[in-house]
């Protein structure tokens, strides 16, 4: 297996508060890494630093064969990271005056300069993949939350990212819509996409992730297979965290949802 994304000693502070205190992370190609942790532990900040929506203060980032000092990332480095990773936001952030189709073609036509007809073809395929072939001309405000998030996932896939970053993709959704979005993500996982997903859907993480990271106070507290982290945490704080999760209580039902 080759490493798709590697972080070494990644650091980030907001003012005097150190939010990431040196994160080491390896994401293998085709792997799904689940990041869990209490609110404020730095999960979002970690993803945002990878996509340079926040500027890291220190550390090394390696994506594929390109490696650079995160604190001194050039414009080129930042552009490289943004073009080869994709972000799925908790609140979707679809372009609000663009249709579902245009949201997906935008990256292709504007960033990659793909001819419009070709971009449209590709976008239609992606929207079909997420089960939205009948919503191409709808605007975000005409779509349900679950549909919006599925469009956002299609948008993130458009540029063929090496790694997809998902920040609590279902936390803003009503329960009945969570299932459809998780089904799409699970589909992607099974088709071999490399993903880093922050989620509070512990059952989902347990089932889909190849590796789980428990983040605590800006540091990695536990990491390993879902079995290792959820069933036999090594640290006291890790035990406390998982003891508060009732894995069966919020069972999701991906199997019931067909797209």
């Amino acid at each position: 297996m080759t490493t798709a994304l590697q972080l070494r000693d990644l650091k980030k502070s907001f003012g005097s508060i150190e939010v990431l205190k040196g994160i080491d992370l390896d994401v293998e190609e085709g792997q799904v890494v689940g990041i869990i942790g209490v609110s404020g532990s730095g999960k979002s900040t970690l993803l945002r630093c990878i996509d340079f929506l926040e500027q890291p203060d220190g550390g090394t980032i390696t994506l594929d064969d390109r490696s650079f000092n995160a604190a001194k990332a050039t414009k080129d480095d930042i552009q490289y990271m943004r073009r080869h990773t994709a972000m799925v936001f908790q609140l979707f952030h679809l372009f609000k005056y663009k249709t579902a189709l245009e949201n997906v073609t935008e990256g292709l036509t504007t960033v990659r300069k793909v001819p419009k007809a070709e971009a449209t073809e590709q976008a239609k395929e992606l929207l079909e993949l997420v089960g939205l072939s009948d919503r191409l001309d709808h605007f975000p405000n005409q779509l349900s939350g679950g549909e919006q998030q599925r469009v956002a996932i299609a948008r993130s896939l458009a540029l063929g990212p090496k790694v997809i970053l998902l920040d609590e993709p279902t936390s803003a959704l009503d329960p009945e819509m969570i299932t459809e979005v998780l089904a799409v993500i699970k589909d992607l996982a099974q088709s071999g996409r490399t993903m880093v997903i922050v989620s509070h859907e512990m059952n989902f993480v347990y089932e889909v992730a190849d590796k789980v990271i428990l983040l605590d106070n800006g540091q990695i507290l536990e990491q390993g297979t879902p079995g290792e982290v959820f069933d036999s945490p090594k640290t006291e704080r890790g035990r406390q965290f998982v003891s508060r999760i009732n894995l069966s209580a919020n069972a999701y039902k991906v199997g019931d949802f067909q797209i």
């Binding site: 943004r82 952030h93 504007t110 993130s156």
Partner: peptide
């Protein structure tokens, strides 16, 4: 969020 979405797709 709109601006971050644009940045995240490499604009």
């Amino acid at each position: 969020g709109q601006i971050e979405a644009a940045h995240s797709i490499g604009m």
